[in-house]
Design a protein around this nucleic acid. Structure first.
Length: 557
RNA sequence: UGGGGUGUUGCCAAGUGGUAAGGCAUCGGAUUCUGAUUCCGACAUGCGUAGGUUCAAUCCCUACCACCCCAGCCA
């Protein structure tokens, strides 16, 4: 059973199934993903990507990548590159790569056609005046004095706008629809504005640029898109989308379908806020592992599969919901659990000397790379007299139900020996420096007579260990709905990044590979960070393991 | 009565005139050399509210309520 075949249905699939049954569009499905190259893609975009590319794949159709680059003031080549990179990383391929700017000539010709047929006019009202004339949500607008300008004059002015004869803001081309429409989008919306900016693809060729509402539908039609899928806020634009295509005599227009954006609690999704986080240095960049950008998630250690799965299991609908962050964590744990090797890693080391173990002796024990994957094989681990264990795996005062190392509680060192506490060594301030333990030589490999040892803990041999820096992340925000705060800074979690400098890892981790995940046994999933170097290994914690003991403890508190 | 949407369990989400899928979370229990994983079991007499139609309504009708979106020469 493949990942794709276990989905539940949703309203878009129902629409397509129905279209196919009626042989609409000759049984073709053609979608597109239309990002504006003005920022990095985030997990919300991933939903749109999965829907559009996913549907095309499911129905043996096509999905184009089309950059909606109609506003040169905001767009940049850096973003067109990162966007392509992220889509590929997510595991999708576009059928064709397009830019709305490739259609500028056609778009202009179509606009001339609208002017010629009296469906558009050149307005000399200022932006402020246009706003006044537009009316309000409850009151109708009124016609611009220029609404009845002659076609000849409109044509002449439009031409001269194109030729760069006028300053920005002096003229604008508007569709002639209905200033009293209850739908504000139909009150003579702008279709071309003067903008004398450098465009990343057309350079300075144009001094006018089409508006989204006009360019988008026409671009869809040019590409033969059958299902134009967008988010809910464009529902009000749908009549306008069809109006343009109708005026241009496009008889089989794409169908616009709107779905609810992905929202996750404890996060922000708006590009505006993400950009602020970057600019105001609350994060290290667009790819900070705490950012829910695709780049950030990738650096954090999330896999494409886990992100695709999140989108699949949370579904597609028209109701505005908020998905719990735990759902995302479930997806990444589920994926990494079956794919990733287990290694010994100690985050907060506590030195343990095994007093009855021979001085200078080293022996090898074997361990499964991944018990969930029989093909993953085994490897050897070095054991010796002095080891590190996790500080959290020892306590002098064990609470009820505790079965880690403590006075009177014997534990198993995973794959090695049973040990029990003999002595606690402290410094002059009474702080624990190290533990003296004894081991049972009969328990090599982790088994001996019939004794029931409940606790098994990870360890690493002092002389064989390597040092590493580990970055522990938690949610960037401490408020479940940061957008509800007046100021997003008020919702920031001061402990979203904790850096541990003296972590001890098993020796094999000096060969850790970037882009690969590891389970540090009992600690969570980690990956090598790009900041890592040979002399300073740096790991990111992708996600913790589920920890029912921690839950138990917090309950009793 | 400005227009457009949405309301199904803590969260996401199918469903449809015939008596509420699934996933996450949660809670039990089993297995376990990761208090992980895995496995079993529990988890909406109820589908925003109130009426109505019907043998039968979450699904149809009416009214109401709540929430989201829209007044960029942004997308």
């Amino acid at each position: 059973m493949t990942e794709e075949s276990v989905h539940t249905t949703n309203f878009i699939r129902n629409i397509i199934d129905n279209d196919l049954q009626n042989n609409k569009n000759n049984g073709k499905v053609a979608t597109r993903f239309p990002p504006e190259p003005n920022g990095y893609l985030h997990i919300g975009h991933a939903k749109s990507i999965c829907i559009n590319f996913g549907l095309a794949k499911e129905y043996q159709g096509t999905c184009n990548l089309r950059f909606d680059d109609t506003n040169p003031a905001k767009e940049d080549i850096e973003y067109v590159e990162s966007i392509q990179n992220d889509i590929k990383w997510l595991g999708f391929e576009w059928s064709n790569l397009h830019f709305a700017s490739d259609y500028f000539d056609k778009l202009y010709d179509y606009a001339v056609q609208l002017v010629k047929s009296g469906k558009a006019y050149v307005d000399s009202l200022s932006a402020d005046q246009i706003r006044e004339y537009r009316g309000t949500l409850k009151e109708a607008g009124k016609n611009s004095p220029d609404r009845d300008r002659s076609i000849e004059e409109n044509l002449d002015l439009f031409e001269r706008m194109k030729n760069g004869e006028f300053d920005e803001g002096t003229y604008i081309v508007r569709a002639k629809i209905d200033m009293s429409s209850p739908n504000i989008n139909m009150r003579d919306p702008a279709i071309y504005r003067i903008k004398k900016a450098h465009h990343h693809r057309t350079d300075y060729k144009w001094s006018i640029y089409p508006m989204y509402d006009y360019a988008h539908g026409v671009s869809d039609a040019i590409e033969g898109i059958t299902h134009s899928i967008c988010t809910l806020e464009f529902e009000d634009h749908r009549p306008l989308y069809y109006w343009f295509l109708e005026q241009l005599n496009i008889t089989t227009p794409p169908q616009q379908i709107e779905f609810a954006k992905l929202k996750l609690d404890y996060t922000v999704m708006s590009k505006r806020t993400l950009l602020k986080l970057v600019q105001e240095k609350y994060v290290s960049g667009w790819d900070d592992p705490r950012m829910l950008t695709i780049a950030g998630l990738r650096r954090r250690g999330y896999t494409p599969e886990s992100i695709r799965n999140l989108i699949e299991i949370t579904g597609v609908s028209k109701s505005n919901g908020v998905v719990e962050f735990g759902q995302l964590e479930y997806c990444i744990r589920e994926d990494l659990n079956k794919k990733v090797n287990r290694i010994m890693g100690i985050l907060k080391p506590l030195k343990v000397v095994i007093t009855n173990y021979p001085e200078g002796k080293t022996e090898e024990v074997d361990i499964d790379n991944n018990p969930e994957d029989e093909t993953a094989g085994k490897r050897m681990l070095s054991f010796s007299k002095t080891i590190y264990i996790e500080q959290d795996d020892f306590t002098e005062t064990p609470p009820k139900g505790y079965f880690r190392l403590a006075p009177g509680i014997e534990v198993r060192l995973k794959q090695a020996y049973y040990i029990k506490l003999e002595n606690i060594i402290r410094d002059e301030n009474g702080i624990i420096e190290e533990l003296h333990c004894t081991y049972d030589p009969e328990s090599k490999g982790g088994t001996a007579d019939g004794r029931k040892i409940k606790g098994t803990i990870q360890w690493v041999s002092e002389q064989h260990a390597i040092n590493a820096e580990v970055r522990l992340y938690s949610s960037l925000f401490s408020k479940s709905n940061p957008d509800a705060e007046e100021n997003y800074q008020d919702a920031l979690n001061p402990d979203s990044l904790i850096v541990l400098k003296d972590c001890k890892l098993e020796a094999s981790m000096k060969n850790a590979e970037k882009g690969k995940g590891y389970q540090f046994i009992r600690n969570g999933y980690f990956c090598l960070d790009q900041d890592s170097s040979e002399n300073n290994l740096v790991f990111n914690r992708t996600v913790t393991l589920k920890d029912s003991w921690a839950k138990e403890k917090s309950k009793s508190r």
